[in-house]
Structure formats: structure tokens, C-alpha cells
Write a protein that binds this DNA or RNA. Structure first.
Lengths: 142, 142
DNA sequence: CTTAATGCAAAGGCTTTGCAGAGAC
DNA sequence: GTCTCTGCAAAGCCTTTGCATTAAG
């Protein structure tokens, strides 16, 4: 029913980064730790910037943005486009879908592997499928 | 198989705007005309700005942005979030889904009413469904 | 020493806002 | 004349970039 949510240790994060050709510097590990620490809830660059700067040692905004861009480009994480004002970064690169809480601005995984999209028409011959994103938008009510 | 694509005359656009409580000024009609003229392909605010300024009489950028925002808020059109760099405006407010061509930056309707999303889990009790967006991303290949 | 990464500040791109001038009735 | 709309320019966000400084081996 639910995909198992794996938690990543620093060691595993380092292996993961190396496996994607990314040199695991202190800052990069700090950033990845935030994303991989709660894999079913996703953060924006600014969220990560704040989280990573809660502790004693900080990371600059430029490094946060550049690192998230790098990790997305290398396939360690993926961007999720759900809100016109910011990009969310998802540490799960396997196909799955999302709930977007428009009231709170929170993006989280739909933790079910039962979601299916059917009836899609075929693509033009000169086009390749990049992916299918399903975003279920919900609003909090009192 | 295909939803019938209706084309709107200026008269119909005016009726539509009035029906949503929007005073149909010259500029607003010019803007709506671009969106409703090709209902299955969608434009960003800047696209509309350019289109509307191809002719002799122009519309300012502020008015284009404000008008699109107004029409979205009043439910004449809807925003589609498919690209992190810009918002697309869709004149079709009925439930349907989209192809996003990441190579060309083009958003268009999936013109099939057969697309279905199944297996969605139930929502939290204090949440209401806003909508389900399916975006099929494709890349052009040579 | 040499290459790579970080961080500050400035610049960019999309969008919103303040406000004065123009238009509608 | 009053209310609304338009448009210019400035400001606001989020994100990227240039470049000097610092870290790594």
C-alpha cells in the first residue's frame, strides 16, 4: 500500500552523491541531508536555505541554489513544478505523484503505488516522453 | 474522441466577460481574443503581451498581467503550472489535461476525454479537492 | 601549486504595485 | 464630475551569474 520510506544516513548520502559524480563537500551533504531526511515532504530552495542555516554552520544562498540545480541535473533529486512562485526538490526520482496543499504551500508524496493515469493518447513521432506529473491540489477547510 | 474546439467571436467574448463580472474594455477583449482564438494551445503572459502588440494598437505589460490575473480570479480562464519560469493561461476551465513540450516550451491540451487518473487515496478530512492536474512532459527528438 | 567549491553581491526574468493620466458614463 | 481602467516606471521575488576568496589534495 505504502512505499517504504527509507531514511538516509550521511554515509549513504555520500555514496549517493559520489555515485552521481558529485563531490560530497560539507555543504552539499548538509543540503542533501535536509531533503533525504524527510523524503515524503518536499522543500523549496529557500526552505532548504533556512533549514540548513538553523544550525551553527551555514550555507550561502548561492551554494544552496547551485547545489540543488546540480543535484537535479545529475539525477540525484528532481524538480517538481507545483507552485508558480518556487520550485520544489524531491529526493525520490522514481515515478510517483504529489499532493499540493495550496493553503499551506506544502508538497508531499502521494504514498500509494495504486495511482494510474490511463487513456493517454500516443505522442507525436518526433517526441519522447519525459515524464507524467500528477498533482492533486487540495485546500484546507475549517 | 476529441472534444470539440469552439472558436469565440468578439461578441461571445464580451458576453463571457460580462457573465463573470468583468467590464469588457477594448484591452481586455484584445487579450481574451488571443487566448480564446486558439483554445487548445496556451500562452504565457509575455506571449499574450507580444501577440496583442503585433497589431496597430497595443496593450501595456501591466494591463496584460493584471487582466490575466483578473480573468483567472474570476474564473474565465485558469492558470496552468507547467514551467518554473512562467505561468500559462488556459481558456478552458473544464477538467482536462496537458502536454508540455519542454523543448519548445509549448503547452497544449490533451484532446482526449479518455484520460483518467485512478487509485487516488482519499483526502485528509479537513481538505477539499481543488483539482487534479496531469502534465505529460515530452521532449522533441530529431 | 593547481583545481574545485563557496559565498557575496550584482544582475536577470517574471510578476506585482503605486500612482498619475485617460477613458467611460 | 465620479468611478474605473490603463500604462509607465519602480519595486518585489525567486533564481542565476561573475568573480574573488577559501578549501582540498
Amino acid at each position: 500500500m505504502h512505499a517504504q520510506i527509507k531514511t538516509y544516513s550521511d554515509t549513504e548520502i555520500i555514496v549517493l552523491l559520489r555515485g552521481h559524480g558529485i563531490n560530497p563537500t560539507t555543504q552539499r551533504v548538509m543540503i542533501a541531508r535536509q531533503l533525504f531526511g524527510r523524503r515524503n515532504v518536499h522543500y523549496s530552495a529557500d526552505d532548504v536555505f533556512k533549514l540548513v542555516n538553523e544550525g551553527p554552520q551555514g550555507v550561502s544562498k548561492a551554494t544552496v541554489y547551485n547545489t540543488l540545480g546540480l543535484m537535479a541535473q545529475k539525477g540525484v533529486i528532481r524538480e517538481v513544478i507545483a507552485d508558480p512562485t518556487k520550485i520544489f526538490y524531491d529526493p525520490n526520482t522514481a515515478p510517483h505523484h504529489h499532493f499540493y496543499d495550496v493553503t499551506r504551500g506544502e508538497l508531499r508524496d502521494i504514498e500509494s503505488d495504486k495511482v494510474q493515469v490511463t487513456g493517454l493518447p500516443s505522442l507525436p513521432k518526433d517526441a519522447a516522453l519525459e515524464g507524467v506529473d500528477v498533482i492533486v491540489r487540495l485546500r484546507r477547510v475549517k
